[in-house]
Each structure stands twice: as structure tokens, then as C-alpha cells.
Design a protein around this nucleic acid. Structure first.
Length: 382
DNA sequence: TTCCAGGTAAACACTT
DNA sequence: AAAGTGTTTACCTGGA
């Protein structure tokens, strides 16, 4: 019917207002299953999520392993790390302390990210106009939430912790009007990618539920992340295949509907056509577009974003490739971790390959998009 | 011009 | 009662 220009962002935010109607069991699933706060990561829960693929499996060919070289992810990490360094000293200083390769935050509460990056970028001038940390994050709220949840050990976070993660990693929000929290909650509620799981009884510390990422949307979110992460890579990216045409169904739609992208889908050109890097508002109080898909990164911020995103990618990859044990989980505890891995690994590999490819392209790209269109328009209109 | 994604604000209900 | 949380609706903007 229509194509999602983003390739995936379409469905990320509630594509339709009535997500309950679209996924009838979705709420019930989460409602039925409780996620022990501490054990959520290792306690598979019976769920029908992995069976209720919104569109079934018709017409989708499952990914098949490609050549070993491409699916071998060792080179990816090398590439990722190497490319981080291309961003200059900041890249190293940022990517290092942010997360270890497994994606764990090196230290809770702002020390790892905020302080280290601040020292390397802002030179101790908080709120400085040139401080990329105070810049508007180049990610949509969906992706911010996704990153927050993915980075959590239990793959689930209460809203409050999501706030905290965002604040920690994007100090921009610390000085932004509080409306962004509303946006976060709005996203959680509306976005099909996120699911609510109840805290286990007896552990009802704090309000609200835990939120986690719908496993089926993980690839989608991951790809969206990369897309927003390397939106400019299209400048140098030469699609190996013919560009999507109106006659061809949107691949990402398959990806979304399936929950798992296929090799064929992923093998196609990454939709890097999205040029949503327009502006970075330096002053969150002036620009109320807290986060955005229409934001450009300052050159200083790029390595930082790469670090965050790429460590997340590495984190996910690590998880899915790690030794099979009971903690091979999804927040909903897919009944068969083995099966889930079998299905998702090729896909993840594919994504990682794409990410690496994007990074390679990015290596030669110096983000230098023009000034804000949106903001100026906004300001003018106000 | 239209459609859609995303952001924002607000209202409301519920829970702690 | 207050604050936090979750849901829903509406509107706006920008991009395709």
C-alpha cells in the first residue's frame, strides 16, 4: 500500500493507534507473564509472541547462511573499533569508557559517559553551545528507549530507569523541558516494539512495570538504529541491487511483519537515503524537539554516537552468539533459546555486516550537513 | 498535495 | 494527597 520511507521506522512508533487491535494477545502476553526483576534475563517465560508474528510467515524465505567470511563477525568488531578511531581522539576516548565490548555500562550514573565524554568534548564547560553532549540526540525516542533497554542487564527497565539512562547518555535532556519524559512514556505505550512486563510479586519496589523490547522488533530497531546512526552513509553507499521500486513490496515491511528479516531482505541495500540529519539544537530550552529523526550530529558527536550504537550492536551480537545457556533469553523468555538463536543469528549477522559496511563508509564521511532547516522553520513560525 | 512517522502536549485513570 | 506511571487523543512538523 505504502512504503515506509525509513524502511523500519514506520512501524516502530505505533503505526496504528490501535495496537491492541492489531496484536490481540500482545497485552495479554505481557500481562500474563511476570518478569522477575532480577531474574528476568534468565527466566524464559512461556509466551506466544514468537508465534504470533503479525503476518505469519508466508512468502518469506528464511535467511540462509552466506559465506563464512561475511558471517564471521570477528572482522566486524575489528572494523567497528578501527572506525571508531577514525573519528579522532574523541572517538577513542568516548568509545572506550562508554561500554565494554559486551555493552555493559562501565559505571552507573553518569560517570562513565557523562563525565568522560564531557571532559573530552566539552572541556568542562557544561551547557556550552558546542558541547555535543548537550546536543539533541540523533535518535528517535524509540531508539533511545531501545538502547536503554538493550543496555540493561536484564533487558528490561522501568520507566524511571529509562529516564535515567537517557539522561545519563544524553545530558541534553537534563536541561530539556520535562516533556521528553512524557514522550518516552508515550512511546512506550504506543510503540509496538516495546512491551510491558509486570514486576514479579514481592518485588514491587517502585511504581510501574518493566519495559522490554519485543524480540520480533529487535532487528527492526537495530536497523533503525543503524539507519539513524549512519544516515549519511548513503552519500557513498552504492546499492548492490536495484533500488526499491514502487512495484516491489517494502522489504522492511516484511522484516517488521516477520519479526525477523531475511537474508534477502537484509542483503538488499540499506536504506540510507534518509537524510534526517538536519540540525542539532544546542539549546534544549529553545528547541523542544528533544530527540529527533531530523537531527544532525555535530562532528564531535558522531564518534560518541558510534560508540554507543556500536557497542550496543556488539552487545547484541555478543549475546546472541554467546554460549547457549539458560540466560539466552528474550525479555519474554522465548521458549526455545536455541530456536531463537537459529533464527536470529543470520539476521543479526546480516545487520552487523551492514553496520560494519556503514562504518566503513562512514570512515570517509565527515558529517557536515548544513544548518537547521527545521529549527529555523520552527523559530520562524513562533 | 497527501500520507506517514515522529514529537509534543494534555487529559485522564490508576498505582504507590 | 501527591507523585509517578500508563494510556489515549489531538495536533504539529518534516519528509517522501
Amino acid at each position: 500500500m505504502h512504503e515506509y520511507p525509513l524502511g523500519l521506522m514506520g512501524p516502530i512508533i505505533g503505526m496504528s493507534p490501535d495496537k491492541k487491535a492489531e496484536s490481540p494477545g500482545s497485552q495479554g502476553v505481557c500481562g500474563a507473564g511476570t518478569l522477575p526483576e532480577a531474574e528476568s534475563a534468565s527466566s524464559p517465560m512461556a509466551t506466544s509472541l514468537d508465534r504470533i508474528g503479525p503476518a505469519g510467515v508466508a512468502g518469506v524465505s528464511r535467511a540462509e547462511p552466506e559465506d563464512d567470511e561475511l558471517t564471521n563477525l570477528n572482522w566486524l568488531h575489528e572494523n567497528l573499533l578501527q572506525n571508531f578511531t577514525l573519528g579522532g581522539p574523541e572517538a577513542q576516548s568516548c568509545s572506550g569508557p562508554l561500554f565494554d565490548i559486551e555493552g555493559s555500562i562501565s559505571s552507573p550514573h553518569g560517570h562513565s559517559l557523562s563525565s568522560s565524554s564531557s571532559s573530552s568534548v566539552s572541556s568542562g564547560s557544561p551547557g556550552s553551545e558546542r558541547d555535543p553532549l548537550k546536543s539533541k540526540p540523533p535518535f528517535s525516542f524509540s531508539l533511545l528507549i531501545y538502547m536503554a533497554i538493550e543496555q540493561s542487564p536484564s533487558k528490561s527497565l522501568p520507566v524511571k530507569d529509562i529516564y535515567g539512562w537517557i539522561l545519563e547518555h544524553f545530558p541534553y535532556f537534563s536541561s530539556a523541558p520535562t516533556g521528553w519524559k512524557n514522550s518516552v512514556r508515550h512511546n512506550l505505550s504506543l510503540n509496538k516494539c516495546f512491551r510491558k512486563v509486570e514486576r514479579s510479586l514481592g518485588k514491587t519496589n517502585g511504581k510501574g512495570s518493566l519495559w522490554c523490547v519485543h524480540p520480533e522488533f529487535r532487528p527492526t530497531l537495530m536497523q533503525a538504529l543503524k539507519k539513524q546512526h549512519f544516515p549519511n552513509a548513503h552519500a557513498l553507499y552504492t546499492p548492490p541491487a536495484s533500488p526499491p521500486s514502487a512495484s516491489s513490496p517494502p522489504r522492511h515491511l516484511f522484516t517488521l511483519e516477520q519479526g525477523y528479516s531475511t537474508k534477502g531482505d537484509q542483503e538488499g541495500p540499506i536504506d540510507l537515503s534518509r537524510r534526517d540529519l538536519v540540525v542539532v539544537s544546542r539549546d534544549p530550552k529553545q528547541d523542544h524537539t528533544y530527540s529527533s529523526s531530523s537531527v544532525s550530529r555535530s562532528p564531535q558527536q558522531m564518534p560518541r554516537c558510534q560508540a554507543v550504537v556500536s557497542s550496543l550492536i556488539a552487545h547484541v551480537e555478543q549475546e546472541r552468539r554467546g554460549p547457549a545457556h539458560s540466560s539466552d533469553y528474550t525479555p519474554w523468555g522465548h521458549p526455545s533459546g536455541k530456536r531463537a538463536r537459529q533464527e536470529s543469528r543470520p539476521e543479526v549477522d546480516e545487520e552487523l555486516k551492514e553496520a560494519a559496511g556503514s562504518l566503513l563508509h562512514l570512515a570517509g564521511i565527515c558529517t557536515s550537513l548544513g544548518a537547521s532547516k527545521r529549527k529555523s522553520r520552527k523559530l520562524n513560525s513562533k
